[in-house]
């Protein structure tokens, strides 16, 4: 680690401010990992010392944790692509593309995520069925809402808009001269984007994108409103059966906390790695 830091090039860009406390960062990293361990340890101690109800809660919500992680990870991967194309569309000189992406971003940002998720789950299938009836396509007329699929769709649609703005800002933060230099060498717009602008923009984008992942992990609890048995919903089911809200929701909160803290450490690690390998 130390030898690498010595050869690290002097930063001239956005990360300049982050560089100032660099000497202490290595120490901080360990400190924050301790917090992750602390929360995980707390969960473990509770489960061992009082297996009833804590260990029972964990066993009960286990599959919910799986659903929460599944939805978060799959949505996140898809929304990166949506965000990239959305961001490119937002800076496009083509008026039609620009209008469509801008409209998309503005509409999505103006509607609460919970309402969007409910709309995709309850309202969207009605449209599909109606179209199926009109066009006499039995597959569509008998369409049954798939909760996981529509939840992922809803998240990708919503977060994709926010992601588009992050990509747009990241791309626009790269000096124009980079694109001009690439174009003057005969590269096309997309070649210049792919090989020159985007690789530099990724470094700028990474911290906010990482934050989006953590925000998404927390927002995924909203799917409990659309009949999906995620961590939050499983918690509610356990509470309904055993009527011990304090223990259940403390445990659920701790499980979310350990997941978000852990993700934050991973994001931080990736950020630092890409900074070294510039």
């Amino acid at each position: 680690m130390f030898t690498r830091r010595k050869t690290e090039p002097p930063e001239i860009k956005i990360s300049e401010l982050e560089n100032i406390p660099e000497a202490g960062v290595g120490y901080h990293i360990d400190a924050w990992w301790w917090l992750v361990a602390l929360v995980a340890g707390l969960i473990a101690i509770l489960s061992i010392t009082k297996p009833d109800p804590y260990w029972r809660i964990i066993l009960f919500v286990r599959d919910g944790i799986g659903i929460t992680i599944l939805i978060t990870v799959v949505s996140f991967i898809l929304m990166i692509f949506v965000g990239m194309f959305g961001g490119l569309g937002r800076i496009s000189k083509n008026k039609a593309i620009n209008l469509i992406t801008t409209l998309y971003v503005e509409i999505v940002r103006g509607i609460p995520l919970l309402v969007q998720l409910i709309w995709w789950y309850f309202a969207f299938p009605v449209i599909i069925k109606q179209i199926g009836v009109w066009t006499h396509i039995p597959f569509m007329a008998n369409y049954q809402a798939n909760a996981i699929l529509l939840a992922i769709f809803g998240f990708v649609f919503c977060y994709g808009a926010y992601m588009s703005e992050i990509f747009r800002a990241g791309i626009q933060s790269i000096p124009k001269g980079q694109m001009e230099a690439a174009r003057s060498l005969g590269m096309s717009y997309f070649q210049s984007m792919r090989h020159v602008v985007l690789p530099q923009a990724i470094r700028v984008i990474l911290p906010p994108v990482g934050n989006e992942f953590i925000a998404l992990l927390k927002d995924s609890s909203l799917v409990s409103a659309v009949a999906l048995a995620d961590l939050t919903r499983r918690g509610r089911e356990f509470m309904a059966a055993n009527f011990n809200p304090l223990q259940v929701w403390t445990m659920i909160a701790l499980i979310y906390l350990v997941m978000t803290l852990f993700s934050a450490r991973i994001v931080n690690y990736i950020e630092r790695r890409t900074k070294f390998e510039r």
Partner: peptide, 11 residues
């Protein structure tokens, strides 16, 4: 083309 601000690809 050579620019005033060099515009080398910084990555």
């Amino acid at each position: 083309m050579v620019f005033q601000s060099f515009n080398l690809f910084s990555h």
